[in-house]
Simulated assay, not measured.
Amino acid sequence: MLKTPSRLAIAACFALACVASPALADGPIADRGEAVEKAHFQKDRETILAMAGDYKVRFDMQESTPWMEGYEPLDRKLSGGYESVRVIEDTGTKIVLQHLLVVGPEGEEFVIKHWRQDWEYEPEKILAYTGPNTWEWKEMPERLRNGRWSQTVYQVDDSPRYAGWGEWQDSQGIRRWRSNWTTRPLARRDAVRNPIYDRYEGINRHQLTPTGWIHWQDNTKMMPDAGAEDGLKPVVQEYVLNTYNAFDGYNTGAADAYWAATKTYWDAVRDKWDEVAEANGGITIEEEAETGTVISGRLLTIGTELQEGQIAEDAAIAEARALIEQATAPGAARSATEPAGQSDY
């Protein structure tokens, strides 16, 4: 005769499942042997590089479950556009993808430098968002590095936005990457509303599709709460699905022309941000809801002026480096708790 488990045993089983499952999902990857590891690494690289191309993009954002009594979720927001994604660095273990928005009517197109994603294989540390105006180096646990890639996302001016790490896996015939839980500053769509929440705690997924790829975000919008264990409490859940479908029926040459004219300038900007992060153990800089960092608007304008021949390259680089140096100097950033953002995505 089968013995019926007690309520206590059932409760213990459920408790163990709730605790163990996420830990197992993010547990160490056992050594699979040199040949298998190399095969996985090459397949990972091919998948990341496959995200480069020209796309028609659809951005679908939807608040869903309120976690706070009385909170009314926002209406669904849809937008889109044309975006070219280019590989601007590939060292083997590091791949950098630059996104370039092409906007405007035919014959009058102009380019907006958009977000950037850096993929790094088995990194020792990541530059993570830790609160208003602040990003800090966080060690990636050594036992979890094997076989994993970090993804660091940067804002339109190449300042950091968020970082996470995860493993590329095949399941149900689909190639997927899922991040650990990552903290992010608010996007512009939320920051400009001066909401009660001031950050996202989210999981990011990247998946290839037959026509391109998707970036899926599962975000919990959080607000400060001195009474909570970690100083934060959830407000509402949000699901974001960014769909990139291969499409070249727009002026893709505008993106390449912009990058050809500004590449050296943006290389220098990235180098300066890296220099500051290494010297200071991270980056602290004031942000604005509308634009991201307080120097974002000028850094982007310099790029446009450079493309149009209104400023010399050496002068553009010198001004950009000085702006970053001044804006990240100790005491330059206020201790405000107002939310910050950059793009709607």
Rank of each mutant, 00 (worst) to 15 (best):
L2M: 08
T4D: 10
A9L: 08
I10Y: 07
A11G: 10
A11M: 10
A15Q: 11
A15V: 11
L16S: 10
C18G: 13
V19Q: 08
V19F: 14
V19N: 03
S21R: 11
A23N: 13
L24H: 05
D26I: 11
P28N: 08
I29Y: 12
I29W: 04
A30K: 12
R32Q: 09
G33E: 00
G33R: 05
Q42G: 03
Q42D: 08
D44W: 00
E46P: 15
E46M: 15
T47S: 15
T47N: 03
L49K: 13
E63S: 03
W67Y: 13
P73M: 02
L74K: 05
D75L: 10
G81W: 01
G81M: 01
Y82I: 00
Y82W: 02
E83N: 04
R86H: 04
V87Q: 15
D90F: 07
G92E: 02
T93C: 09
K94S: 09
Q98M: 08
L100I: 05
V103S: 14
G107P: 02
G107M: 02
K113N: 08
H114V: 02
D118Y: 02
W119G: 01
E124C: 08
K125Y: 01
I126C: 09
I126H: 00
G131V: 05
T134R: 04
W135T: 00
P141Q: 08
L144N: 04
N146F: 07
N146H: 11
R148V: 13
Q151R: 11
Q151M: 14
T152R: 07
V153I: 13
V153M: 12
Y154F: 10
Y154T: 07
Y154D: 05
P160T: 02
W168H: 11
S171G: 14
S171M: 15
R175L: 06
R176H: 09
N180I: 05
W181L: 15
L186S: 03
L186I: 01
D190W: 06
N194D: 12
R199W: 03
E201N: 06
I203L: 06
I203V: 15
R205I: 08
H206Q: 15
P210V: 11
T211P: 09
T211M: 12
I214F: 05
I214A: 11
Q217K: 11
Q217T: 04
Q217L: 06
D218W: 07
M222G: 01
M222K: 02
A226H: 10
G227K: 15
D230E: 12
L241A: 04
A246K: 13
A246H: 12
G249E: 14
N251E: 13
G253E: 07
A255N: 13
A257G: 14
W259T: 04
W259A: 05
A261W: 01
T262N: 01
K263I: 05
T264G: 14
W273E: 00
E275Q: 11
E275Y: 04
A277Y: 00
N280H: 10
N280K: 13
I285T: 02
E286I: 05
A289S: 15
T291V: 12
G297P: 14
L299K: 03
T301N: 11
I302M: 09
L306T: 09
Q307M: 09
Q307G: 15
Q307E: 14
G309A: 15
G309F: 10
E313R: 14
E313P: 15
D314R: 10
E319A: 05
R321L: 03
I324L: 06
E325A: 12
T328F: 00
G331R: 01
G331I: 12
R334I: 08
A336C: 10
E338K: 03
S343E: 10
D344V: 01
D344F: 03
